[in-house]
Design a protein around this nucleic acid. Structure first.
Lengths: 165, 165
DNA sequence: CTTCGTTGGTTGACTGTTCAAGTAAAGCTG
DNA sequence: CAGCTTTACTTGAACAGTCAACCAACGAAG
């Protein structure tokens, strides 16, 4: 059933402490995205992924990025981004343009209206992040949390790289 | 645009350090569920939410829970759970039964086949969690991480409670 | 300069989630 | 016990995300 070298019987089951810890992490993985998304959706009609895409564009030179570049920055698949940008294009917040050098690449450009929408959404979003995340953690814990998060994502990327070369 | 008491201009923007830390957490919130789901789907044809529902049932007396109870345990909305259970029912991994005391409640019951499927899926899942999460963190960090996660989810719940009483 | 493989992106069908509405049993309340 | 309200789900439509084709442009190789 699994392709791993270890047999299933070798896997040490989680200790009660590990299990509780893992479940509280899972709880976070469900609830935090939900909370952030809810605030953004309610106050600005944006999903987190849409916000991220627009935020990344806003920080780029000319407020412009190629699709594949933006996909990486916003943690989205190319397909997902394509659909997402199409929707934002209909709201006139993003414009698409063919690159003049390489005609295969599409450049996504944050319009002025998009920039305005992002600016309107940002304070509420930041307030939410502050209230839910930063204010919940004692001083110094944020840095630790970020380091642990980075360590885990690094393991994910490494694992993915060894799994399919 | 927002219903909060603070005006938008009062919100202190994130410092560069806070922003970096937050983005690394966001990265985790995207990649870790994806990695876990991918492993489960590939090796066992289950999504994380399906796995969680079945795991919760497996630990309950009679391998039985009422839908609303299971929804809370598995972090799902009632509607989502209803659809999800319908799908698992078609695979004969879960059975539904009306409660004999209160005819409104539906009891979800993990079948023997469901238990077998769960047992087959568990080792691979645990191995994944170990490899990606537990093994990425130095000793002691897991407990800290869990505490921080719990603090944040508590803030989310508190916030949600004050927002809509 | 034409063929072939690669890169960059789009599209459409399917799947799962959410949201709003609906149903039906329980539990008051007068 | 007749008429509300609440509780416990279920359902169907809308929507976002994934996956597997697909297409067009580029770039080597012959």
């Amino acid at each position: 059933m699994s392709t791993a070298k270890q047999t299933d019987d070798d896997v040490p089951w989680l200790t009660p402490g590990e299990l509780r810890a893992w479940l509280s992490v899972v709880d976070l993985l469900i609830k935090l995205p939900w909370a952030i998304d809810t605030q953004l959706q309610r106050d600005s009609g944006l999903s987190m992924s849409e916000y991220m895409a627009m935020a990344m564009l806003s920080g780029a030179p000319q407020r412009t990025m190629r699709m594949s570049e933006l996909a990486k920055a916003a943690n989205a698949s190319l397909s997902r981004l394509s659909h997402l940008v199409k929707r934002l294009e209909q709201r006139a917040w993003i414009r698409r343009e063919q690159d003049s050098v390489d005609a295969r690449v599409t450049n996504a450009i944050l319009t002025d209206a998009g920039m305005a929408a992002l600016s309107a959404a940002a304070p509420g979003h930041v307030r939410g992040v502050r209230k839910l995340v930063l204010d919940s953690l004692p001083a110094g814990h944020l840095r630790r949390l970020a380091q642990d998060a980075t360590a885990i994502t690094a393991a994910i990327i490494a694992d993915h790289a060894t799994a399919c070369p």
